[in-house]
């Protein structure tokens, strides 16, 4: 009895937190996604599917596709950078490993908005990177490193990289080194050992990291606003604009709900494929 009380002391705040700050707002967004927008930014309480229908306009479908493309590209670049890094770090001694993994986490100590302003200093026309390249005569004219898709992808990869490195690193570092020795003992070269032994074992982690990068990449509006220069629209800033600029809350809510559904479907797919793979790996 006493245990039960103590347990609920710890659990109740968490339940309240998720209920008040996560569940209720989502339900509210879901409800207003069926409301009607009125001309002064207010809402008319009614039930309409109009908001959802108007998403299927070529402009918005284009934004959806573009968002997915940027998210997918971000995800793949993160994978390509993270895998060799995680592999290399996991071979180092314990002390070096912890130094590298701390370095991976260090950026989190600074506000991500501030870090994006940092990138602007580096990437802009007269920014550090262009200045250096110009002064070394490597380029004749400054490169357009931001206010375009490239800038957005750079910002996204930079921000989301740790989410790919962490699951990969923790998966790779738990691989029994004797499996690698057994593989080499049985005649496999390094590449075969990688593709036949390491990669299959880390596949769930790769999938996991992929999801953790892909999903936020759809919604990071501040990266798109800052490094895309306001010219480029993806789902995240589309939703933000509907709420804050266009003051069309019902439409913004409909897009937000659609994004939640897509994310949910991705997680379901992960549970079906990745979840099973997790079982096998364990």
């Amino acid at each position: 009895m006493k245990n039960k009380i103590i347990r609920s002391i710890f659990i109740v705040p968490v339940i309240l937190y998720s209920l008040l700050l996560i569940a209720l707002p989502i339900i509210y967004v879901l409800i207003i996604s069926f409301y009607k927008n009125d001309s002064y930014g207010g809402m008319i309480r009614t039930f309409t599917l109009e908001n959802y229908m108007s998403i299927f306009n070529s402009v918005y479908i284009g934004i959806f596709l573009k968002s997915f493309l940027i998210a997918v590209i971000t995800m793949f670049i993160c994978m390509i950078i993270s895998y060799p890094f995680a592999l290399a770090v996991s071979h180092k001694n314990a002390k070096t490993q912890s130094i590298f993994m701390t370095l991976v986490m260090v950026p989190f100590l600074t506000n991500s908005l501030i870090r994006m302003y940092g990138w602007i200093v580096l990437l802009r026309k007269n920014g550090v990177i262009n200045q250096v390249l110009l002064s070394l005569n490597i380029i004749k004219n400054p490169l357009n490193l931001m206010y375009n898709n490239l800038g957005i992808v750079i910002g996204m990869v930079y921000t989301l990289l740790p989410f790919m490195i962490l699951p990969l690193y923790s998966s790779i570092s738990t691989i029994d080194y004797r499996l690698l020795e057994a593989s080499s003992d049985l005649g496999a070269n390094k590449w075969k050992t990688f593709t036949k032994v390491i990669l299959p074992i880390t596949f769930p982690a790769l999938f996991n990291g992929g999801l953790m990068v892909f999903t936020p990449a759809l919604g990071f509006f501040f990266i798109v606003d800052l490094l895309g220069g306001g010219k480029i629209m993806i789902l995240g800033n589309l939703i933000k604009n509907q709420f804050l600029t266009a003051r069309n809350w019902p439409f913004g809510a409909a897009i937000a709900i659609l994004l939640i559904i897509i994310t949910y479907i991705l997680i379901m797919i992960y549970r079906k494929i990745g979840g099973k793979m997790d079982d096998l790996g364990a």
């Binding site: 029994d176 004797r178 499996l179 020795e181 057994a182 593989s183 080499s184 003992d185 049985l186 005649g187 496999a188 070269n189 036949k196 032994v197 299959p200 074992i201 096998l280 790996g281």
Partner: peptide, 20 residues
């Protein structure tokens, strides 16, 4: 000579079977 090129094989203490 690298392990993979030697005509010997090892049986490991924990078996080291490929789990997947």
């Amino acid at each position: 000579l690298e392990a993979r090129k030697r005509q010997v094989n090892t049986i490991f203490q924990n078996y080291a079977l490929f789990p997947l």
